[in-house]
Design a binder for these strands. Structure first.
Length: 937
DNA sequence: GAGTTTGAAACT
DNA sequence: CAGTTTCAAACTC
């Protein structure tokens, strides 16, 4: 808020996308190299690498100044290329290592004040991981905690492998340095020496062994992280496995040697299946570390998780504070740590339940990425006002304001635009509005992406978040760079920015725009009475400041009036938490083709307007219709009359839904049958839609293109910060509704959270994760799960972030692990302690889809009490009570299932430390199912 | 460019 | 919650 320009500048969704894309692009190259990325890629046709990169990129990106400064995770300006650099450096330069050490130090220092030992340890992990990371800029590092994590995971894997093979003395040195830094404070004098002795990549581990019991927990986490990396390596690189095996051997050696605890390690290894050995070995180390072989790893993990939870809380708090100190590296670092911790937390939980399955590991890395993505999304979005935790990631991708859409369309097509935006953002810390404008202007310089033609728009929208980033990715990786001209424009305009537009005559501006949209498609307002402080104003509604092109009068939607804007925004959000959420959501239309008879039914794009239109006379054939304007088809959520939407008629949509339901894919035919009101909950469901104020959001990307959305989805994840977790999930194959809101509004019922609810929540998370990882489904499209539904409840959502803290969170995480990877971030289940998660089935039914498809059957079986709790939709009108998720027919999406199997494999290694939910057997059952599946595999 | 139409947002 | 009013964009001329 107070923060510097960046914070002030509103971030147009488009700009956000651009930034995201830029970040992504920057990071892309490195990620690809990482084993993690490889792993991901192996999993799905979609290149996760990019996703991972994206995430990193997000982290790294300096968040464009949002109109609504919110505590962004990424607020700090960072070198966008950091992620890439990091990845590259991971490859092994000593210099890099040393630098990373330095960075770590700086980070550590910065964190010291804020973070507890645990945090330090986290940092350690990060640091260790990041040994390979480029140190180029501490700021960068700090700026993108998530990236760091990602890089870390990737780097760590690589490093470990390399080191294990023959030790890179240099790497060892780097490790030592890191260790020194880390442990120096702890008085571990001899550790360094020992660490040096451990030349193999395990040096870190050995060091950890020395750590005190307190450190053990942290170490465990680290080990887990390493284990994850290892697991990733396994999955991704068989060759790497080889290295890992050697590494494991080393572990065995070390274990006994150092602490005499080696027994545990060796035993561990022996017991474990080959592929898992690596991971387990690490765990064994953890056990050994304390010298307490007896200490159950899980117990430690629990503690660690708790610590992490505390961390996460801290993080949230930081996040809140952050807005103010956005610029400070320390803060960013803290956030990063927090994020990391959150991820680790999840990881820990997962480890407990599943004992670090490879998938879990991947999930972890993914989680980080997701976090990054979420952060990115947040950046893109207008941001939450004060609470980072609450801030909802608005997935720039799928959930789009109409303005955003417009922008997106232009951007999406080429990715060039997105790049432009991103670069523009990079180049300038100017306000988002400026950025937007720049983008617009830039568009001229660039080859203008084809104007969004109706058909194309949808895809564009979808692509906005994801595709843009990816395209940027590719382009950047390819060496694509903005043209100097473009850069000039950006920079220059950035400089001028706000003032310009203020003084510009509206007429001139208007001329410029001809439409309300700039050439690029950025909308500009022409408000006269509302001061651009109401949702009538497209700029305001989009969370961006009015800019030059605007011809508004008496505009207060400017950086100068940031406070006013924020206050107004808050007020509006208080009325409707989703008021600022993107209007267009892309449903994850992942359903299996087989299910997809309806493929056509929907508009060219599966995207839908979250609330739907209410057209009476325009027949949805004019821009009066928001659906039409967004180039999306009408859906059940629409109350239009005489719909003739060329993108998809509501009727058709409904019919399709019904067909799908009848086909049995959807056990409940609620979609079509439902009263409109119920259907409309879509808004709530939209991940993107969550306003910053709103409880959280997560974000998923709504990509209009499934593929795109998939990509996006990865990128967008529930940010740890966001209290409300919106689960983005790929639309289950079964739900035909992909449309509007795939979002699921989870509303916690005031009653107790049933295990089922937890499971569901987990399942959602998992589903999302799965979708991302396996299906690559457009998370973007996923319906986001919003825990707090109604505005009144939105506040409750704030508590979501605490889910992790919530004792239940563990169960959730464990459950998640069982089911899939619960994203560490996912606060969902935790929603209010007492509340049950209710899946609102949005018109999209995305939630259902997710549940059905992604959810383990167990979860499905669990009957969720669908509490008719109405998620208050911002509109109030459209929120429908959640439907029973369990009822959804389980249509398995192939990919998802595969994902499940994957996870299952991981599970067996450890006894479930914490049953998901003791109360109900559903979780356990699900676990059993997983195990079975695994055994089958 | 002015005026009309339209539907969302805001208000009651 | 429904109905009405206000508003600004979209549209027409």
């Amino acid at each position: 808020m107070d923060s510097p320009k960046l914070s002030k500048s509103p971030i147009p969704s488009a700009s956000a996308f651009a930034s995201a894309s830029a970040s992504i692009s920057s990071s892309s190259s490195p990620v690809q190299e990482s084993p993690f990325s490889n792993y991901i890629s192996s999993l799905s046709p979609i290149k996760h690498d990019k996703a991972a990169h994206v995430a990193q990129g997000f982290v790294g990106l300096s968040s464009p100044p949002l109109v609504f400064t919110s505590p962004r995770i990424n607020t700090l300006g960072r070198p966008q290329s950091s992620s890439v650099e990091i990845s590259q450096k991971c490859e092994g330069d000593k210099k890099i290592i040393n630098e990373s050490c330095i960075l770590e130090r700086s980070v550590t220092e910065s964190q010291e004040g804020l973070v507890t030992d645990i945090k330090n340890e986290d940092n350690k992990d990060d640091v260790a991981v990041q040994l390979g990371s480029s140190s180029e800029c501490v700021d960068e590092y700090l700026a993108d905690p998530v990236e760091t994590d990602c890089a870390k995971s990737a780097c760590s894997v690589k490093l470990n492998l390399k080191q294990s093979n023959n030790v890179l003395q240099s790497s060892v040195d780097g490790l030592l340095d890191l260790k020194n830094i880390k442990f120096g404070s702890k008085n571990n004098v001899g550790r360094e020496v020992d660490a040096a002795q451990f030349l193999s990549g395990q040096s870190e581990e050995s060091i950890e062994r020395k750590l005190t019991s307190d450190e053990k927990l942290l170490k465990i986490e680290n080990e887990q992280g390493s284990a994850q990396g290892i697991s990733d390596g396994f999955q991704k690189f068989e060759s790497d496995r080889f290295d890992l095996s050697s590494k494991e051997k080393e572990c065995k050696k070390f274990g006994p040697q150092k602490d005499g605890r080696g027994d545990g390690c060796s035993n561990f290894l022996q017991q474990l299946p080959g592929s898992l050995l690596g991971v387990q070995s690490y765990e064994g180390f953890a056990k050994n570390i304390g010298g307490d072989a007896d200490v159950p790893v899980h117990s430690m993990t629990h503690e660690a998780s708790e610590l992490q939870r505390s961390m996460s809380r801290r993080c949230l708090q930081f996040g809140e504070a952050q807005p103010e100190a956005t610029a400070t590296c320390s803060i960013s670092t803290n956030r990063a740590n927090n994020i990391i911790s959150s991820t680790t937390l999840a990881t820990n939980s997962e480890t407990e339940s599943l004992s670090s399955s490879h998938l879990d590991l991947s999930a972890k890395s993914r989680t980080r990425q997701l976090v990054n993505l979420s952060q990115l999304a947040m950046n893109m979005i207008p941001q939450c006002y004060g609470n980072s935790s609450l801030t909802v990631l608005k997935p720039s991708g799928i959930g789009l304001h109409l303005n955003s859409i417009v922008n997106a369309t232009s951007m999406g097509q080429g990715g060039t635009a997105s790049m432009k935006l991103a670069q523009a953002i990079k180049s300038t810390s100017t306000t988002s509005c400026q950025t937007t404008e720049n983008i617009d202007n830039c568009s001229d310089a660039f080859e203008k992406v084809s104007t969004p033609q109706e058909g194309a728009l949808e895809q564009k929208v979808c692509t906005i978040a994801g595709s843009a980033s990816e395209s940027l990715f590719a382009e950047e990786s390819a060496g694509f760079h903005m043209t100097p001209n473009t850069k000039r424009k950006f920079s220059s305009e950035d400089g001028d920015g706000n003032d310009m537009f203020d003084q510009q005559s509206p007429i001139k501006k208007r001329k410029k725009l001809s439409n309300s949209t700039d050439g690029d498609g950025c909308k500009r307002c022409n408000c006269k009475k509302t001061k651009c402080l109401k949702l009538y104003c497209d700029c305001f509604a989009a969370g961006i400041y009015c800019a030059e092109p605007c011809s508004c009068q008496g505009c207060f939607n400017r950086p100068e009036y940031e406070e006013t804007v924020l206050e107004t925004r808050k007020q509006i959000e208080s009325r409707n938490p989703l008021a600022f959420a993107p209007k267009i959501v892309q449903p994850v239309t992942e359903f299996p083709l087989s299910n997809r008879e309806d493929g056509n039914r929907k508009t060219p794009s599966s995207a839908r307007h979250k609330r739907g239109c209410n057209c009476k006379r325009s027949m949805c054939l004019k821009k009066y219709c928001e659906c039409f304007q967004a180039n999306v088809g009408c859906s059940i959520g629409c109350r239009c009359e005489g719909c003739k939407n060329v993108y998809g008629k509501k009727k058709d949509y409904c019919v399709t839904e019904e067909m799908v339901n009848r086909s049995g894919e959807i056990s409940e035919s609620r979609v079509a049958a439902k009263p409109k009101k119920e259907i409309f909950h879509s808004e709530l469901c939209d991940p993107y839609h969550l306003t910053p104020l709103t409880p959280s959001v997560q974000c998923s990307d709504h990509g209009k293109n499934a593929s795109i959305s998939r990509l996006l989805s990865r990128r967008c994840l529930p940010s740890p910060e966001s209290e409300l977790t919106v689960l983005s999930y790929a639309k289950s194959p079964r739900s035909p509704r992909t449309s509007d809101s795939n979002d699921i509004l989870l509303e916690t019922s005031k009653g107790n959270l049933d295990i089922d609810s937890f499971c569901e929540g987990i399942s959602y998370n998992n589903a999302v994760t799965l979708a991302d990882e396996f299906h690559h489904t457009p998370l973007p499209n996923h319906p986001s799960v919003i825990i707090g539904s109604s505005s009144s409840k939105a506040r409750e959502l704030t508590s979501l972030s605490r889910v992790q803290l919530d004792p239940r969170s563990r169960s959730l995480t464990s459950g998640g692990s069982l089911h899939w990877h619960s994203s560490p971030i996912m606060p969902m289940s935790p929603l209010n302690d007492n509340k049950k998660l209710q899946g609102l089935d949005s018109a999209d039914g995305g939630l259902y889809d997710i549940l059905e498809d992604d959810m383990p059957e167990i979860l499905k079986d669990t009957s969720m009490p669908i509490k008719p709790v109405k998620a208050g939709s911002p509109n109030g009108k459209r929120v429908s009570p959640p439907h029973n998720l369990h009822q959804l027919g389980s249509s398995s999406s192939g990919p998802l299932r595969s994902g499940r199997k994957f996870i299952l494999k991981a599970v067996p290694s450890f006894p479930p430390l914490t049953p998901c939910i003791d109360a109900k057997g559903s979780c356990n059952q699900s676990r059993n199912n997983f195990q079975e599946n695994r055994s089958n595999d």
